[in-house]
Amino acid sequence: MPASTKDQPDGPDRRRLDDLSRRLDAARGERETDAEKAATASARGRSLGAGFRLASELMAAVLVGLALGLGADFAFDVSPFGLLAGLFIGFAAGLRNAAAAMTAGQNDAGGGADKEKRSGEDDR
């Protein structure tokens, strides 16, 4: 706070005040970088989770389509058209799932993260 101490004469008090504010600034900066670091780490973990989510949504739907297609092949003896149709439908369903997960992630995960942060701050 140089503005408020400008009119005071130079002296040991002034020097001590400057020193204190310098140390305060340093401590504050340290804490902010720590918080930033933690935020980046948790953001990385969250995006890892989001990536895993998209991958598993897509994969699960393709697998289900594959299973249904093979089942149709087996039941109605239409091999290989059941498999082909099943894979296509499974892929379409997977993309639909992934798209839904992405839109939900944009509204939902962000809100959840904010809520977490807020409740964390309340305790401190």
Partner: peptide, 22 residues
Amino acid sequence: VLIEFVSFLSRPLSLAIRLFAN
């Protein structure tokens, strides 16, 4: 409807695969 049906069926699988794979 077919795509939505497959998408619904894939839900338990994707839940299971995600947790297990992680």
